[in-house]
Design a binder for these strands. Structure first.
Length: 891
RNA sequence: GCGCGCUUAGCUCAGUGGUAGAGCACAUCCUUCACACGGAUGGGGUCGCAGGUUCGAACCCUGCAGCGCGCACCA
């Protein structure tokens, strides 16, 4: 039993216990166990990422679920790992390369560059894992996975090949979201629509067959004018019907382009005429397809103008070119006006620049098992919490677009497709091969290169990171083609804890992949965490600098303090406004818990067995019964994933019930002067309650509870609290209501007496005497405790007491209590106070009377409610009388 | 434009039909032998607005307003 310092110092304790758990293999899951399985897979953080508060919340929740499941006697697997995060990681390494060596990835070549990324990953990939360990996460590190592990990569390739064989993956030239900085295609989900202040340009095109006659057009993008191949109007628009089928002059480079009619054009918007640039706008592309229009690409991959016929624009950046093109139009007298305009522009999620709709050859996936996946959530086979996210999910599932899965990156899973060299047009590279060529044997799709490998060239592209993430729940549990013991025991998983921002990126896709490749749903429940914001309601972000470093917080307040503080304020369905104060409260709470135990040890270090509870004083039975109730309530709350409520209940029990009431009530028994019997009894109750309480708290604050359990002797050296199964027997196996009523009466009465003292500014005086008239029959047994709690020298029972007029008094559950004032009070101040009080009570009395005078209330409200109202009226009335007397006495 | 959510004390939020709550902050008192990362007491709210249902509404219904977030091809 070690020395207790005055304040709890978490840092050393937390490190010690984490190491002990690892040594004891406490987190390792045994697939051969006979116990029921509970499993959860971590949402893999980016391998080069660092921990932020979102991770803390998310992983603390998973840890709580895992630790609670262990306490419930389950065999638990919490499977950890990291994600290779294609664009993010590659961008980091490229930036480093540029800054340190002034080189691009192409300068190094693919093989050398990938080597650098792997080096980078090996150097930095462990950081976030170490941080999760600092937080106390009970992951099975022996099963840690990475989305680019060899076996995982096999899964990814296999899935690609299978879906290709089923005709769900195809290659095609489509308009995609192109990031001009990352130089790759993106999926629709990776594009963030952002309102932008921009300009709407109004300009006019001359009719080819009627010089001097013009058609007015509006656009936000004059710089793509060179790619215009038509002007479209709505066929129902009478203003333009006469132009349909005629030609207008595109100003530069000069060309005559047709005026066409298409329903897509909004008559109300701008001039009602739309220039059609199929190469640079998704809607224009579709109109172009409908009308068989030419596609003229006037932008380079990095969004510079490519138009040798317009030398003054050629080579300019798109935004520079926009101004230049507008100026050119003005010079030509074709610009009518420019209006300020707000529109939504798609930004690249990673590079934070406007994406460019661009035509390119890409691989696409038609989602598998869409109907099954949609139904699974709709019919509750997978339960979303909060439930409303199911609607968001359903909406997305109903409007699925094919997924662009190829990325023009090097870091990732390379597409398992080879093209025959002879068929490859050496000038045009693989883009020249259309899907139809597959039939001719020019494309090889498979896990391995073709046997005559030297005749084949592999597709250079890699797959979208999420194309590997969506296999995470099962690809982490088994090698391809193997029905591993782990998979058998732990798949499908039970819970998934993640943010609602990746419902589409990840959750929905995992459900589809699970169905497709395992025939099962990958999880049963999805718990969506709160998004953490700052006190102004802004999202946490690096650039705003409003994101506290969780490691700093843990250094300052301890991992337990951080976990508990954050969890206690985490709401069920809405965003969370983070305030460091709550972490401070978590730390303070840990200290409170620690000091309660310290107090116990000051009265003796030997464990004391619990005797026959039935014979115990009411305070003891009361606190034990409250713990039993807490224990039962937590079981319910866990079933409903109400984590914040659980933390709050644990907090209130320890602080308000155990420390403020129970410990204060039994303090005398722990003093030197107490009898050894009384002390033993109290220590026994303390130990029984505290040992169970620590266990209930353990999932939230794993380190301190483990530490205290050992120090207090509840656990022996070599045992772990986290491995103990929750007891099923209550501490109080009989009806405790009589004892609890007595304890409640004393606690409430003590409060009233303290109020009384404070009202007369005697709050800190310990020498006051209270006289109880008409005491409840058992009060003589409890006067010592009442005096202690009320901060009084003594409580005197005197049924014949005649109070002097004006003696302060209070009506309490144990009788009428008087506070004789031998000291002085300010008579005038007292009169004012009492007058105000009487006024207040008068209002209450009238309220009650009004209610009871209302026939419909008396007749129609439930009888017990009416009775309650009557009792309340009586109470107010008697208080009114009492105060009036006091006032009279003062006069 | 469609959908979802939020609006309760200075701040952050509980509270799904029966006397408005917690923590923090604030004020006063207490360094009493577990804890000042503590204890005691107190002030502070027409529960966003307007209707409706009900004996009774913070809570149920309708409308409105403000804020936030998704989704959407108005250039």
């Amino acid at each position: 039993m070690s020395e207790f310092a005055k304040a709890y110092e978490p840092q050393a304790v937390e490190a010690k216990w984490y190491a002990a758990w690892i040594d004891g293999k406490c987190f390792e899951a045994d697939p051969s166990s006979a116990k029921d399985a509970y499993s959860i897979v971590i949402p893999p953080p980016n391998v080069t990422g660092i921990l932020h508060l979102g991770h803390v919340l998310n992983n603390a929740l998973q840890d709580i679920l895992a630790r609670r499941a262990r306490q419930e006697g389950k065999e638990v697997l919490w499977l950890p790992g990291t994600d290779h995060a294609g664009i993010a990681t590659q961008a980091k390494v490229e930036r480093e390369l540029r800054e340190n060596e002034g080189k691009t990835r192409r300068d190094l070549g693919r093989a050398e560059f990938l080597k650098r990324v792997w080096d980078f990953k090996n150097k930095h990939g462990d950081i976030i894992i170490q941080q999760l360990k600092r937080l106390g996460c009970s992951c099975d590190w022996s099963r840690e996975r990475f989305t680019m592990d060899e076996s995982y990569t096999k899964w990814v390739s296999h899935v690609f090949v299978e879906l290709f064989k089923q005709g769900l993956i195809y290659r095609g030239k489509r308009i995609v979201n192109w990031c001009p900085v990352s130089l790759t295609a993106l999926s629709d989900e990776e594009v963030i629509m952002t309102p932008q202040r921009s300009k709407l340009y109004f300009m006019k095109y001359e009719l080819a067959d009627a010089p001097g006659e013009f058609l007015e057009i509006s656009t936000t993008r004059p710089e793509t004018l060179m790619g215009d191949v038509a002007v479209a109007v709505n066929p129902k628009d009478p203003r333009f019907s006469k132009y349909i089928g005629r030609m207008v002059k595109r100003p530069f480079p000069h060309a005559d382009i047709p005026v066409i009619a298409d329903d897509h054009v909004d008559i109300e918007f701008g001039t009602g005429a739309l220039k059609i640039t199929p190469a640079h706008d998704k809607a224009d592309f579709e109109i172009g397809m409908r009308h068989g229009l030419e596609i003229i690409d006037v932008l380079t991959p990095d969004a510079h103008i490519h138009c040798p016929d317009c030398p003054d624009l050629h080579g300019l950046d798109r935004f520079v070119a926009r101004k230049k093109a507008a100026a050119k139009l003005e010079e030509m007298g074709l610009l009518i006006k420019v209006e300020e305009y707000e529109n939504n522009v798609g930004f690249s999620e990673r590079a934070h620049v406007p994406i460019e709709p661009r035509i390119s050859m890409q691989w696409f996936l038609k989602y598998p098992c869409v109907q099954e996946a949609a139904d699974a959530v709709a019919n509750g086979d997978i339960k979303f919490r909060p439930e409303r996210w199911a609607k968001t999910y359903a909406h997305w599932m109903e409007n699925l677009q094919d997924w662009c899965i190829s990325r023009q990156l090097w870091w990732g899973h390379q597409i398992p497709v080879w093209y025959h060299k002879e068929k490859l047009d050496p000038l045009k590279n693989a883009e020249s091969l259309e899907m139809a060529d597959f039939e001719k044997g020019d494309i090889h799709v498979g896990l391995d290169a073709p046997a005559d490998g030297e005749n084949w060239v592999r597709d250079e592209d890699v797959m979208d990171t999420w194309f590997s993430s969506w296999l995470w729940p099962f690809a982490t549990m088994s090698d391809l083609g193997e029905n591993s013991a782990t998979l058998k025991k732990f798949y499908p998983t039970d819970d998934l804890v993640t943010g609602p921002d990746i419902i589409f990126f990840w959750v929905a896709r995992m459900i589809m992949a699970g169905f497709q490749f395992t025939g099962e749903l990958p999880f049963k429940n999805v718990f969506f965490t709160s998004i953490i914001r700052d006190l102004q309601g802004r999202k946490m972000s690096k650039s705003l600098g409003n994101s506290p470093d969780p490691i700093d917080l843990m250094e300052k307040y301890g991992a337990d303090g951080l976990r508990f503080g954050l969890l206690r304020i985490a709401p069920v369905g809405s965003d969370l406004r983070f305030d460091e104060v709550s972490v401070e409260e978590g730390r303070n709470f840990a200290n409170k818990l620690y000091n309660a135990c310290r107090f116990r040890q000051m009265a003796g270090t030997d464990l004391v067995e619990l005797g026959d509870v039935k014979t115990f004083p009411p305070y003891h039975i009361d606190i034990m019964a409250k713990l039993d109730a807490l224990s039962a309530d937590l079981t319910e709350s866990y079933a409903e994933y109400r984590f914040g409520e659980i933390a709050q209940r644990l907090y209130e029990f320890l602080w308000n019930e155990f420390c403020d009431k129970f410990l204060e009530a039994v303090k005398l028994d722990l003093r030197e002067s107490a009898t050894s019997e009384a002390r033993a009894l109290t220590l026994g109750t303390f130990d029984a309650v505290m040992s169970r309480y620590l266990q209930l708290m353990s999932p939230y604050m794993p380190h301190i509870t483990e530490e205290l359990s050992l120090r207090m002797g509840y656990m022996k050296e070599g045992e772990f609290l986290m491995q103990q199964v929750l007891p099923s027997e209550p501490l109080v196996p009989f009806d405790p209501s009589a004892a609890q009523a007595r304890a409640a009466a004393i606690y409430e009465s003590a409060g009233r007496l303290r109020n009384l003292k404070a009202e007369y500014n005697l709050g800190s005086r310990k020498d006051v005497r209270f006289i109880v008239k008409g005491a409840i029959n058992w009060l003589s047994e409890e006067t010592k405790v009442l005096a202690l709690l009320a901060g009084a020298a003594e409580i005197v029972l005197d049924s014949s007491y005649e109070a002097q007029k004006g003696t302060p008094a209070a009506l309490t559950p144990v009788g009428e209590v008087y506070l004789p004032m031998e000291g002085l009070i300010d008579v005038e101040a007292e009169r004012i106070r009492i007058s105000k009080e009487i006024e207040k009570i008068g209002i209450e009395v009238r309220k009650c009377e009004g209610k009871l005078g209302n026939a419909s209330f008396v007749d129609r409200a439930p009888p017990e409610v009416v009775e309650q109202e009557k009792a309340r009226l009586e109470e107010w009335k008697s208080k009114h009388v009492q105060l009036s007397e006091m006032l009279a006495a003062l006069a």
